[in-house]
Design a protein around this nucleic acid. Structure first.
Lengths: 263, 263
DNA sequence: CGGATTGTTCCATATAATGAAACCTTATTC
DNA sequence: GAATAAGGTTTCATTATATGGAACAATCCG
């Protein structure tokens, strides 16, 4: 049996455990001490200790002798550069995002799906352009973001069911869809409509329109969104940007397929 | 025995081997087939196969069923975001880079040292961008870049010796320093001078001025450079930007120390 | 100075990785 | 279209590696 979904809870082998530890350290968001990590992992002391040593010796973590803390290492940044270039739409979409940004003057997100979550791989700010890893690499929920819903809507039935199952359905705002049923209905509508809207479902005052990026055969490659605030614009206003959005999404799909991204 | 330098040739444990495979895939720069990877790794078929399976199942690699190729996975991008935020100077230096960029209008690089190589962690483009390699996450040689020399010059003696040992001394241009002796002399001069210059040593027509970013106790945290082309400017012209450069470098050091980065 | 708390090392045992070879499966050739 | 080759996957006895309970240091704390 071939396991192709990324692993959610339990790890296979030593490598899996080591990567879990990586996640643990990364999730802390700040340098973490041994004891802290020990408390959150279910590994015995000695095991975690040696895992940390190995990762540190490999440059995946950095150990701060002074404060006795572990943090993600720079080797990751190197590796991620390759990942970003090769398995994300970002480098291909770059000039197209620039053009769209120029045209609409609002914040733009390019996202892909990773384990039921939204992974942002590129972004343009309303005002000035930003740089790679500052925003790229961030993750977000699938069920209450424009890009998340746009991608889920066009997933094959079983993948969609799996993705829906992974959602937390936490009510970020009063508008958040908080049940699988509500989400499913919404996804049906999105599939009929071709684009999705975020109606302040994730953050109060933030709205967006998003479109999936689909391969010629209909496979979901990613999603593209234009985001704004209720102070600057309205849902109707966003609707007007729809042609620019879907056109760019189509262009990205085309560009991606001509270079790689098969089926 | 504790191996603390990141791995150059041989790995410790299974995790090390797995990470070697990651490097291998990342280094290819494009989706790679099993056989290709097999040829370059010294693992037996079955071993490499299972290593790849594990990494894929962990989301560190993505496997393209259609083309039967492996590429770095998106989980890396997620992890790298954490690494970039926590163990790089970039997020701290961000506003300062913006200001410097505004002021000098040339390309700016922020780099750190990783295994004797230069790792670029942030960048600002010149107002009129010139075509040249570099993005965050990219790596470069230490011995023939402004930032590389600036950092090496201020390393403690033994670390410096180690770093010099790791250099390839490939002659990218006629100006490249191609011996350890020449480099050492250059580093002495840089230490006396406080800043380094790249005199078209890495790429014909590209010059830069760079300054180290030093902690209060003199530890090398990174380096900052202003890059231009011989068409746009001269070494003398760059010399004039020196105050702005060193001042920004100092500010970054200060900002970094007040938040973390110990000794 | 006792008594915690936190971090590191040992070592017999359990577990997981190994790799040679067999076995599929898909291209290629005649 | 059968034969052959190349690429990819699985098996299984063997071996190397990771494991974790417990002992040991080191550091902190009142």
């Amino acid at each position: 049996m071939n396991r192709q979904t990324t692993n959610g809870g339990h790890a296979d082998g030593t490598v899996g455990k080591a990567l879990d530890v990586m996640d643990l350290v990364a999730a802390k968001g700040r340098p973490a001490r041994f004891a802290e990590l020990l408390a959150e992992s279910d590994h015995p002391k000695a095991t975690l200790y040696r895992l940390l040593q190995t990762l540190t010796s490999q440059g995946m973590l950095t150990y701060d002798e002074g404060r006795q803390t572990y943090a993600p290492g720079l080797r990751l940044v190197r590796l991620a550069h390759a990942a970003w270039q090769q398995s994300s739409l970002a480098p291909i979409a770059r000039p197209l995002l620039d053009a769209l940004s120029e045209q609409v003057g609002e914040t733009i997100h390019l996202a892909q799906m990773d384990q039921g979550q939204v992974l942002y791989v590129d972004k343009r700010n309303a005002r000035k352009p930003i740089d790679m890893f500052s925003e790229a690499g961030k993750i977000g929920p699938g069920y209450c973001t424009g890009v998340g819903k746009a991608m889920m809507a066009f997933l094959p039935e079983d993948d969609r069911a799996k993705a829906i199952n992974m959602q937390a359905f936490f009510a970020h705002t009063p508008q958040t869809l908080t049940t699988a049923e509500a989400l499913e209905r919404e996804l049906d509508a999105i599939r009929a409509e071709g684009v999705s809207f975020d109606r302040e479902e994730h953050e109060q005052g933030i709205i967006c329109i998003a479109a999936p990026i689909l391969s010629a055969t209909g496979r979901v490659m990613g999603a593209l969104s234009i985001t704004t605030s209720t102070q600057r614009n309205t849902l109707d206003g966003l609707e007007k940007l729809r042609p620019a959005l879907t056109e760019t999404a189509a262009k990205i799909a085309e560009a991606a397929e001509s270079w790689q991204f098969p089926d």
